[in-house]
Design a protein around this nucleic acid. Structure first.
Lengths: 185, 185
DNA sequence: GTCTATATACAGATAGAC
DNA sequence: GTCTATCTGTATATAGAC
């Protein structure tokens, strides 16, 4: 892995662990094993590096969701598989956590991938729900868009609860609750 | 309002807007209209001031929830009133946002109120759900604890979605979705 | 209680040598 | 491409005068 790549991966980790405001160029360089000169040669500065890191993380979040949601099987099973997939729950969502970062939100370039990711995810889940509803898995009155927003919110909120409790079981509990509700929908 | 009080309120606002890592003693002092000498006379430092501010915000979040959940009426109506109460959605949750702050999470004193708040809220909602179930409002199989965790997660996740989209409608959508699911539970 | 002065460290770069 | 030196500003205090 060359220096540029190590800098991007280190930045992704640090944005995940500490956010943008809490991450300095210095610690990025140290973790990447690269010097200042190297970092400022490959990137214009902290925000430029963060842009690349955020775009990559957003892409991964989408790809991982698509893997589960595009699988064969009933809609509810695919959604359950996505919600229950292995996650580093106590680290939180690498994309969602950035919505709490004032400097990310203040910069349209850094912020854009966040909105796009959740828009895409909600629409993708809504499509799966609509498909399930049309196959008679859910009540005909089910609102796919609102229900999809609820599911994404349970995920993001589940991370928050787990972090607050210091226990990933809290995430599992929220997921179990919403799946039980969906089973009766 | 004396200087001590102004410092606490300014800190509460700034923790809400920018988090702990993103807030410096200097901007706290400026917003409070107090000098350094004043701040360090009343508080031992930034984290001491933050402790007081966080404890107060956590208390308010609980009091506001209790106001709606202790009201008379059917369980589902009280929960709906709580979820739909007026909120500064795009500012996020003043308590939940702190779970993303590395320096808050690293300090047991600053962190404790977060866990306590969400524990309390989940248990309070679970009690309301159990009450509704026992009155025949919900299916006898409803799991109050898991469902309560889901509801709190929808709230916290709803804030995340709204911020990412830059639109409070996304929060409303998630809330609408979970209420529709609860109506069929 | 509040003010000003001072201090150490870090943030976030830029410049130029190699 | 990477290194070292340098720079301006901020973070987070402490000390002592008033």
């Amino acid at each position: 892995m060359d220096a540029s790549e190590r800098l991007i991966e280190s930045t992704r980790e640090l944005l995940w662990e500490r956010g943008y405001v809490g991450t300095s160029p210095k610690v990025i360089q140290e973790r990447a094993g690269a010097g200042q000169g190297s970092m400022y040669h490959h990137f214009r500065g902290k925000s430029d590096l963060a842009r690349v890191a955020i775009e990559r993380s957003a892409g991964e979040v989408r790809a991982e969701a698509e893997r589960r949601l595009a699988a064969p099987g009933p809609a509810l099973e695919r959604i359950a598989a996505y919600l229950r997939r292995e996650r580093e729950v106590l680290k939180g969502c690498p994309v969602g956590r950035l919505t709490q970062d004032p400097d990310v939100m203040a910069d349209p370039v850094l912020r854009a991938p966040l909105g796009e990711t959740f828009d895409w995810l909600r629409d993708r889940l809504a499509a799966v729900l609509a498909e399930g509803r049309d196959h008679g898995e859910f009540d005909a009155e089910l609102d796919p868009a609102a229900t999809a927003a609820t599911i994404v919110a349970v995920l993001q909120g589940g991370y928050v609860l787990a972090k607050a409790a210091g226990d990933s079981a809290e995430f599992d509990r929220a997921v179990t609750g919403v799946l039980a509700l969906l089973r009766r929908a």
